[in-house]
Every structure is written in C-alpha cells, then in structure tokens.
Design a protein around this nucleic acid. Structure first.
Lengths: 208, 208
DNA sequence: CTTGACTTTCTTACACCGTAAGGACAGAGT
DNA sequence: ACTCTGTCCTTACGGTGTAAGAAAGTCAAG
C-alpha cells in the first residue's frame, strides 16, 4: 500500500554492486559509506548490516572484478603458454573495465573461493605439462603480477591530485626520452604494445 | 638565548624526510598532517608552507625512494640485460626497504628529474645496443613494472583490515594449491624465487 | 633604536570521513 | 496479542584535509 516502501530490501550483493557502479562512475575517492547509502536510498549505518566495515566493502569490489574473469585451461597439455596468454589478456580487459578498482586489486590479495579456483585450475593445467605445483603457482603468479602492474601503470589514477597537467614536462635534457615521446610513447596503442611486449617476453622466457 | 627556539627551521626536505621516517615506522595510514606536524614539533597547518597539499607530500615520498636507487648503465653495449637485472634488483631492494611507500610508487608516476634521468640513462644504454628509443623505453618500463608489481604483492600491506589471520584458508578443495603451500609457497625465500623466476624469464624473452 | 616588510607559525573553523551505541518500527512465529 | 528478529534511522565521537586570517618572530633600512 505504501508507494515508498520502508524496507529497501538490500542484500550484500546489491550493496557491492552499487559500490562497484559508484566507483566505476566517480572513482574510488568518491566511495564513502554515506554516499553509497544515498545511492541506495538508505542511511550510511544501514550498510553495516551487510558489510562489517569498509575494508570488507573494498574486498568485495576486488572479489567482484576478479571473479568476472573466468579462465579456461582445457586443451592439450603443451598449450599452456597460449592458455596463460588468454588468461592474461582477459584479466587485463576486465581490470581496464574498472580502473578505479585496480589499486585495490593490486593491494589486497584475492582470497575468495572463485579466485582460488581459477588459480587452482591454472596450476593444475601446468601440472599436466609436467610442471611441479610450486613452480606452477610461481608461473601463474608471475603472469598475474605482470597484468596487475601494467594495468596499474596504464590506468594511473593518481588519487588526490587536483589536476593532471598532461605532458608539460621539459624533456630537452632527455633526448632519448623526447625521441620516444615523439615516436608515440604514452598513447593508448603504446600501452597495448607495452603489455604485449612484456607478456610475450615473459611467456617466452618461462618456457625453460 | 632561548633554549627552545620558536622557529623550527623547517625545509621541504626535512618535512619529506620526517614523513618517510613516520611511514617507515608506523605505516602510511598513520601519516596525517597533524601527526607529521607533531613529529616536527609544529602545528599541522605549518606544513602547508612547505608542501601545497597532502598529495604533493605523497609525491615527495615517492620521489625520495625512487631517487635513492641510482642505476649504472655503463659498460659494453651488449651487456644491457645484465645491467637491467642489476637495476631491477636494486630497485626492489630499495622498495622493500620502504614497504609503506610501495603502493604510492605503484600509483603515482615518478616525474621527478632524477627519475627521468635514470630512465634516460637506461634507454640511452639500450640505444647503443641498436634498440630504438620507443622500444628501449618499453623495455625499461616492462622491467620497472615487473619490480613494482612483485614488491606490491610481497609487501601486501592491505590497509584497513583489523587483523590478517595468517593462512587459515581451507585448501582441501584445491589440491594443487595445497601441495604448493606445503612445498614452501608464500615463504620469504619463495618471494625471492618468484621474483627471480619472473625477472629472468622477462629478460630472456626480451632478447629477441 | 625604531619602523616596517617578510616569513614563519598558530588558531579557529568547516565539511567530510568511518563507525559505536541505541532506539524505532516492520513482519513472522507462537 | 506478544515477543522475537531483522532492518533501518538518529545521534554522537574522534579523526581527516585544508581555507582564512591573526599573531609573532626575523631582518634590513632609516
């Protein structure tokens, strides 16, 4: 009978979803309990019924993003470099879809079940190629770390700065650097190229 | 004549130095303008005469840390992989010496003159080996990114969490993972091994 | 010495943050 | 009808970064 229901009918999932939406739209620094509450038509303290503290909320953001990339490690055992490559590319795509979350992914280790499952799958696939469990996880870790590091540099949120004055640096003292910038360094295409270079090199070097 | 001088005689360098000390001792989340002021025997607002805003203070921390690693790229032109390796190891050592600053280094690009100079030197050295400026900078970037990524994972501060409950995860559903943990994964020695594995693989793969 | 300009420091204040404590109210089970 | 449980709000506390301006120290010129 009430047009405006007194109960908002929240769930942990709705809260996390709204948080991710807010971060994607306005950036992490705008994510506060009060603002998120307002987004959901609710007071700040209400959120504490679905999340124990803000840190858990941030963990939830990480969980959402890393869970969205579901790698597939089926196929013949000797194709693991190609599979790892696919995983890396998918992971990067997902991270770049949520730039505000990247620093969180980089900072807090994902311990959720789905994240562990993905790691387990990858390691098991490497195991079938005759690689021991410790080495397999090191390899998976190296690839993940590379992806995160590159996305971090690419999305460079640099929170707190009022403005980002483009490229007003004086490069006259750095000829090689200047030449590289003139050659297209820093462009979006260059980010892709940097990532591909590093990923290919890592995978190539890993086969030994 | 005054035992306690009314003027503290601060400088930007002293402020930055005290900030780094505070972060090394207590972690970033404890770095506030008021606390840093107290550390220097001064009110919070006084600091704003040496630093325009807190973001600049954080930039200063990054600058201090990255400036401390001064790579040497002299030597014959074909030794660049070994030089890059030395740089990577020195960079990592310096970062691990200041764990609280690692997330800052990962987030805000170092645009200081000394940082640019180091990059310039490295790129120039690669240039003597017949590598073009764009490719040279991509290589330097790949190595730096790898170092930052690995240090980020290794120092994993995970700010905000009350406690870090060790390894109480239930790994029974993840046999490969469990086997790897039993095999020593996660130990300090393993971090070193992970870094070495990734760095060697990257450098090997980069020679092509 | 006095004066006045300058730099450095402090005081006060504001808006915002995370969250502890407890009260108001709805719907379900007895 | 009555309590119970879960949802939501109100109030409050101590913390944050920082804007505005008053006060006090320093130093050179008159």
């Amino acid at each position: 009978m009430n047009a405006t229901a007194k109960r908002a009918g929240l769930t942990r999932e709705k809260v996390l979803g709204a948080a991710l939406e807010l971060v994607d739209r306005d950036g992490i620094e705008k994510l506060s309990m009060r603002r998120l509450g307002a987004e959901l038509g609710v007071e700040a303290m209400t959120l504490y019924h679905y999340v124990p503290h803000k840190a858990a909320l941030l963990d939830g953001l990480v969980e959402q993003v890393v869970s969205a990339v579901r790698p597939d490690f089926d196929g013949s055992a000797d194709e693991w470099p190609a599979r790892l490559r696919e995983f890396a590319v998918a992971f990067r795509d997902e991270l770049l879809r949520h730039p505000g979350v990247i620093p969180l992914v980089a900072t807090r280790p994902a311990r959720s079940a789905t994240a562990l499952l993905a790691v387990e799958d990858a390691a098991a696939a490497l195991g079938e190629a005759g690689i021991g469990p410790v080495q397999a996880l090191r390899i998976v870790n190296a690839v993940s770390t590379l992806v995160i590091g590159h996305c971090l540099a690419e999305a460079a949120t640099t929170p707190g700065h009022p403005e980002q004055p483009g490229d007003d640096l004086d490069l006259t003292a750095f000829p090689t650097l200047a030449a590289a910038v003139a050659g297209g360094l820093g462009s979006p295409a260059d980010h892709q190229a940097r990532f591909d270079l590093a990923l290919d090199a890592l995978l190539t070097g890993l086969q030994a």
